[in-house]
Each structure stands twice: as C-alpha cells, then as structure tokens.
C-alpha cells in the first residue's frame, strides 16, 4: 500500500498567547484524493495548513507529505507540496511572469526549464495576456489564479488550496473547479478548504470537519451526507395558501403564502408528500432543498459541538 499524500499525527499548536489552535489532531489523506477540510472561522484549518508549509511552528506531533517528514525531510516534503494561501502573498511590485520564475527558482528549477512550464500555466489559467503586468494591477480573480499558477509551478504531488475561490465570481469559480478537477484527474492530490460548501460537495470525495482545534467528522462526503437525518425541501406553490396543509408524518411550515417547507426524514418518501399535496389541490411549480445538504450537516455538527 502506498504512503498517504498527507499524514498528520497528534498535531497540536499552542500560540504564545496561550490560544490552543490544534488539540492533537490525526488526519490521513490518500494519494489522488480530492479532500475537503472544512470548519468555521478560527477552527484550526489555516493553522494546520501553516504548519504543513512551515509558516507556523507546531507545538507537537508529526506531519508527513508524500511520506516525507516535514522535520526530518524538510526539502523533500516541500518539494512535493504546493500551497495556495488565502491572502495575496506575492510581491505587488513584481511582474506576473517574474513572480512565477522566482518561485520556480526557489524550488531549484532553472529558468530555461521553468519558462515553458510557466507559459503553460499562464495560458491555462487565463493570465497569458497579463504576464508582463505588475501583479498589483491584476483583478482579484486574476490574483487568485496567479496564486494557483505559482503553487503549481514546481508540479507538486499535493496541492493545498486555502479558500481559493473567495471573492471570485461564479463564472470564474466554475472555471477554477474544472481546472482543479482536471489536475486531480491527472494525479495531483488536492486538499481544499472553503466556505462554499456546495464547492466541497461538487468537487471533493472525502471530507474532514474541524472545529475548536479538533476533527469532529472524517469520512467520504457520500457517507457523511447519508448521516443527515432530515432534509428540508422548499416547495414553490402555484397559488397562495392561507393555511398550512396537513400531511401525516411530515412537518410542514408556510414561510410565505407561496412557499411551503416540508421536512423529510431519511427513509421517508417524497412521493407521499406530492400525493398529499395533490389531494389538497396544492400545485407545486418547483422544489429545492432549503440549504445545501453538506451545509446543513456542517451547521448541525459544528453547532452541536459548540452546545456541548
């Protein structure tokens, strides 16, 4: 069995001010996975990523990237790791292409070999026309794509993206999804943190949810969603209702005269809802889930932990 792309054991971090950011977490991400690391703000996601790329010093624990320990095999671990940070941490007074050439150089890749590779990513990420532009002149979306190009320039086996689509418009976000799916299919393991849970649901196969410095859930997205006991559907009605229709075994709420929310437990049938509504002469024009299913689960998990 091959070594995992990422192995974290008993990782903890206590900052100088006494704040415990990570409480001995264990996490394994297999090679080739598209993995979501989710959690509310301040949960410990960025601290974990910071430790992986050595911007944050861990208090204890072991971390290996592609089998290389980040303490003992520092160079090899970093050789295999690419990171797209949340913040724009490139030189704003440097040209786009130079930023990528410098990053390649820091990884020991000679300029002559780096340039064709850089041109490939500039074209692929729609930055080709901006290669001679100062990076500060790029739009927010372009800056995000520059961060991705920079993380890929040394062709890492493990790519970590810390909220890569924050502030990016829908069209660009979809384009990034396609690009990330493509490089994942080519063999790059991807770990994604995001606040857009539909993004995680659409892209990732496995997920870990971190809250207050602890992993509170770790499974495949499919299995995790299967634990969801109740899904709330919003039915858009053809005609306004003045009273909530009664459907045996289902809890219904009328949020406004044309919107009916129906809670459906796991194992219950939606057909029964429609049969009951038809019997009451209620016509449904369209239907959607109230929230993204993963989002619903995420809120349930993180809030129950908070309450505890």
């Amino acid at each position: 069995m091959s070594t995992p792309a990422l192995s974290i054991q008993q990782l903890s971090k206590i900052y100088d001010n006494g704040f415990v950011a990570l409480k001995g977490i264990d996490l394994t991400v297999e090679r080739g996975d598209f993995f979501a690391l989710l959690g509310p703000n301040g949960a410990g996601k960025s601290t974990t990523i910071g430790i992986l790329c050595s911007l944050v010093t861990k208090s204890s624990g072991d971390v290996s990237v592609m089998g290389f320990n980040i303490d003992r095999d520092f160079g090899m671990a970093k050789r295999h790791l690419g990171v797209v940070p949340q913040e724009f941490n490139f030189n704003q007074f440097e040209k786009v292409e130079n930023i990528l050439i410098n990053t390649a150089g820091y990884h020991g890749i000679p300029r002559s070999e780096a340039i064709p590779r850089i041109h490939h990513y500039l074209k692929k990420l729609g930055l080709w026309d901006k290669r001679d532009v100062m990076s500060r002149a790029l739009s927010g979306g372009m800056k995000r794509r520059l961060l991705i190009a920079r993380a890929l320039v040394h062709q890492p086996d493990l790519l970590i993206l810390d909220e890569p689509t924050a502030g990016v418009d829908i069209e660009l976000r979809r384009g990034m999804w396609d690009f990330l799916s493509e490089i994942n299919q080519q063999g790059t393991t991807i770990i994604l943190t995001t606040h857009y849970l539909e993004e995680a649901e659409a892209l990732c196969r496995n997920v870990a949810i971190i809250n207050h410095g602890e992993i509170i859930a770790r499974s495949s997205i499919k299995d995790l969603l299967a634990t969801l006991h109740t899904v709330t559907f919003v039915c858009d009605l053809e005609k306004p209702l003045s009273a909530v229709p009664v459907i045996d075994g289902y809890e219904c709420t009328l949020t406004d005269a044309l919107s009916l929310e129906v809670e459906v437990d796991r194992g219950q049938s939606l057909n029964a809802v429609f049969v009951a509504l038809s019997a009451n002469n209620v016509a449904v024009t369209s239907m959607r889930t109230k929230t993204n299913r993963l989002e619903e689960l995420f809120v349930t998990l993180t809030s129950s932990k908070d309450a505890a």
Binding site: L55, E87, N91, E94, I99, T103, Y106, H107, G108
Partner: peptide, 17 residues
C-alpha cells in the same frame, strides 16, 4: 518589505535552506 508584503512566504514555503 518582503515580510510586510508577506512575499517572504514564497521563500519560506520553498525547499530553500
């Protein structure tokens, strides 16, 4: 300047001694 602009991180995350 590299610290202030955070681009010192480009070097810190790379395999440079």
């Amino acid at each position: 300047g590299a610290k202030f602009g955070k681009f010192i991180e480009e070097m810190l995350v790379s395999p440079i001694s």
